[in-house]
Design a binder for these strands. Structure first.
Lengths: 226, 226
DNA sequence: CTTATTTTTTAGATTTGTCTAAAATTAATT
DNA sequence: AATTAATTTTAGACAAATCTAAAAAATAAG
């Protein structure tokens, strides 16, 4: 079964909205894809016909097993291409998304599997998100990006996503190092900066950009949807 | 200015058919793209509106300067991706075309220029075809693939496109080596095999597959269209 | 130099993905 | 419970790319 780029974008969006098999509603898909609710309804009929989702009108919808499998293969492609762009072609983190959105729709299993091998079968992409394998199995995320770390939960700095001298200087100034304990206390939506407590002592403000480069390990946190 | 994948396919096809600025006719485009003459006419109107070609109905058409520039940027992308697939991802020569046809439509100058650098700014793709640079300038083709070499013309084997032991054994058996002189005497359309004279002495039959891996240098042969 | 043939273009229809506006359904609020 | 508000779906229309069949123009043949 193969899909148009548009269909794939809907599938991916629905997958991301239905974490833990929650029902998804029309409007949230419309907002995410910046389209109208009517267009979403049209596409839902089509995807139901292709047996990718469970859908009764006015009742919400969610991907079935086949739909989730399809979503995972798209996500696999997206994250492998992001890894390629950053690790091999020297793109910056914030430059890859738009291009990866195009590359993820290239249809060729041979291509994506060779790319996977060439990259050394990475388990996580440059944003720290797990890359599903060829069977759709998602690696367990031992460390996650600080921007995705839940509030009021104790974690430990496990990796930094950059080696730039400027960044290391900033971390030293904030008294953050590998192994420091960290708790997210507050998030400021205005600039996406966050306030964290380091080593159970000092409160520090971390910019969105810095947070993107910090990875946190935590124990006993439920793993992502599979 | 940006174009749909379909528009780009038409532009590329017209470019390839109008070598040396010959007028192109509707039917040849239809045959190449496996579509109807009516569809070609529709697209011609659109491309004329976008000022990419000179076209008067019933009189034929050809790309103008802007159209040729666009075609070259598509060809550049196609050939760089083919180089990537063969040199980096270990694709075979005959496996790359379909995937490159998709990849050539990805829109990102940054991507293609980084890819070019990563590949070491290659001048020729794995088929021996020249890769236009970022300004659309086509390198002069010093060596061309044996399959494209004109008949009854003296050339010299300048490169072999594979290092496989099987291939080298075959070449030795046929008494062909780097520097051997070669003249194409006959082409057999049935299996695309060719009969060549080596060192002005022996006649040898060369299969289509072997010919694809042999490159020939020649002096005083007009360069390709720019 | 007419007539026949080929090529090209137009006309009208179809599919995919989209839209707006109106109708149907569900949810929320007196 | 009845009315209002929000959400979702339908209806109808549009643009892009395609098709088939018919008309128009150019080319070839008698």
């Amino acid at each position: 079964m193969s899909f148009t780029a548009t269909e794939e974008n809907y599938i991916k969006t629905i997958y991301q909205l239905q974490a833990h098999d929650k029902m998804v509603n029309t409007n949230s898909v419309a907002v995410t894809l910046q389209t109208s609710a009517a267009s979403v309804t049209d596409m839902l009929k089509k995807l139901k016909l292709k047996k990718l989702l469970v859908y009764e009108k006015y009742k919400g919808f969610k991907l079935n097993q086949e739909g989730k499998k399809t979503a995972l293969s798209i996500i696999r492609k997206h994250r492998l291409w992001e890894t390629f762009l950053v690790n091999i072609l020297q793109f910056k983190w914030d430059e890859v998304h738009e291009v990866a959105e195009q590359l993820e729709h290239i249809q060729s299993n041979q291509l994506i599997n060779h790319l996977d091998d060439f990259l050394g079968n990475p388990k996580f992409d440059p944003h720290g998100d797990p890359i599903p394998d060829a069977n759709g199995k998602m690696p367990v995320q031992e460390q996650i990006n600080l921007t995705k770390f839940p509030m009021h939960t104790v974690g430990e700095i496990s990796a930094v996503g950059s080696q730039s001298a400027d960044m290391l200087a900033l971390l030293r100034h904030k008294n953050i190092e590998l192994g420091s304990s960290i708790i997210v206390e507050q998030i400021f939506p205005f600039d996406d900066s966050i306030e964290v407590k380091i080593n159970n002592q000092i409160l520090v403000n971390i910019s969105a950009k810095l947070a993107q480069h910090l990875f946190v390990k935590q124990t006993n946190y439920e793993s992502k949807q599979c």
